[in-house]
Design a protein around this nucleic acid. Structure first.
Lengths: 307, 307
DNA sequence: TAAGCATTATTGATAAAACCTATTATAAAT
DNA sequence: ATTTATAATAGGTTTTATCAATAATGCTTA
């Protein structure tokens, strides 16, 4: 009988495309993983890896098996969660991911209250970009995500947290520094600083300003980097309103913020979990707690949908 | 990490409600199974079996885990099938079930051709009643079924084989023995012999003749038993047309057959397989072969739907 | 073409685990 | 109270996953 371990090894191997790294991720030695993969092939009576070895390649069957094995692994994880939840729905380990453009400013706001209201819950936090987050959620590597809700998420379910507005951050030396608002269509012809590709905030900013995917400006690795760039006068950028609040609390003087009108852009934040996962009630609970602590329910924003 | 073996043990234990019998079905000793179940509970950190032991009972969590574990086992079986099919789509082991009221006369017709056309296929045959068949298909104990298609089969998919007509079997001494046809509404007031409860043919006969579930006549364990009863003049019964053909080939003299009209009753036969199972093409192939060998495509029958 | 580097396969020893037989404990049935 | 059925425990055996060390392979570079 084939074992879950073998299938897990196979899945990780397919992800890493590398025996050594896969073994490391599985906390076993490379020969162990090699051996088990070989044994799996024997038990199935068919090859999963391509014999020719310019690179590690899966056979067509291999791809299918990996896909099904992934589903299996997540279902096992869900059984474990189910058991954990059965003891006390508000207890246990929860592996939660947050997108980087959200983590920096939303965690200070909600983490305290979560610890306060769910003391028995151990939250394991990771920062992941949207596509990684969804992939890891589907493969069971994480159990929930907090992000700007994408459109289609097969096998997953979401709950809406709130709609966050974007504001325009400009240097204190900027010609608009004394304004308090600006119409969204007037933001053209500015040197718009973006996060690196892959960050959904960058994607959202591009959409808002009608820029192409190839728009080639400075790309910061984090919001903090952008903050410095803006302060030094290299350009302007879009930031979530809570980021403005955080920066101003920290005494930021070099940056002025303009609210955006006609329409006000924003994105729908929410939690994501697996369909059929036992911790869904817990995720909804987290959503309730987070909602109760956010300053006020934003409304009327022009929500930017993206995938 | 919990293992598939443990989950398998749990599923079988839940089915048998008995440690010893479960162990037997899993080809291990009773202490082994006991130990693994206990270990499973430890790993999940929760009880699966009720502590009070008048009878073996599952906790609410236990039921949920069993359900999910069953799904897991089935999916593992499907991976194995997938691998088997990848070598040669027409090769490998196929565990096929047929309902009793069909097996006796359809196997002589199709078995030869199947062996002829799919020599590399090892078919493992079982006779199961409809509800058992569906349950075992869903739990992965069998891979396909040939039966009178029921309405709803969540997680399963079907392909239509043909519509078989029912004919009325009466003793040669019966007042209708010289007739060749009879209207269905005239079958009232006859001593209608049925198969035991659970057989779908019995259910179908009851529906056709408007009998209640509590209709209490002689109940035969097989069609052969009914055959003797009819020949001896104890009553009449409904049989599939292919059964008539088989019995007449065997030189049956004591029974006469009347075709039924207004309307002609029948049932939709077909194959059933799991959604997402890799052997579905093979099942369709079996269906094609069976269809090619059946005498002619029946039409215009009043198909009796049942669940 | 050979040396060097990265990657995977092989080997032999070790430790964990799953397993079995035999036995004991616990309920239920007579 | 005795018997039967059932599950848990104990101790020893076998299997097997595992590791460290090493060899083979393939690709890159000199």
């Amino acid at each position: 009988m084939l074992s879950l371990k073998q299938l897990h090894y196979l899945v990780v191997l397919a992800q890493t495309q590398h025996f050594g790294r896969a073994a490391e991720l599985c906390y076993v030695s490379q020969p162990t993983l090699s051996g088990q993969i070989k044994k799996l092939e024997q038990q199935l009576g068919a090859r999963l890896l391509e014999s020719s070895k310019p690179k590690l390649l899966l056979t067509p069957l291999g791809h299918q098996v990996v896909q099904r094995a992934q589903a299996l692994i997540t279902q096992v994880r869900d059984i474990e969660l189910l058991a954990g939840q059965s003891i006390d729905p508000l207890q246990g380990k929860l592996r939660l991911a947050i997108i980087p453009s959200l983590a920096a400013y939303i965690l200070p706001v909600i983490s305290q209250v979560v610890v306060q209201q769910l003391p028995a819950l151990q939250v394991e936090l990771v920062e992941l970009q949207t596509h990684q987050l969804i992939a890891q959620l589907q493969t069971g590597l994480i159990d929930g995500g907090l992000l700007a809700l994408p459109k289609d998420t097969p096998g997953l379910r979401s709950v809406e947290l709130w709609v966050e507005h974007f504001v325009l951050a400009v240097p204190a030396t900027h010609e608009w520094a004394q304004r308090t608002r600006i119409a969204s269509q007037d933001i053209h012809d500015q040197n718009l600083l973006l996060l690196e590709d892959g960050h959904c905030l960058a994607e959202q900013s591009r959409r808002l300003c009608g820029l192409s995917d190839t728009y080639n400006a400075f790309k910061g690795t984090s919001l903090e980097t952008l903050r410095h760039m803006v302060r030094m006068g290299y350009g302007v950028t879009l930031v979530p309103q809570l980021t403005q609040q955080l920066w101003q609390q920290q005494g930021e003087q070099g940056i002025k913020f303009l609210s955006i009108t006609d329409p006000t852009p924003g994105r729908q934040l929410g939690f994501l979990g697996r369909q059929g996962s036992a911790i869904w009630p817990l995720i909804k609970r987290l959503n309730d707690i987070a909602q109760s602590v956010l300053p006020y329910q934003q409304q009327g924003a022009n929500v930017i949908a993206f995938d």
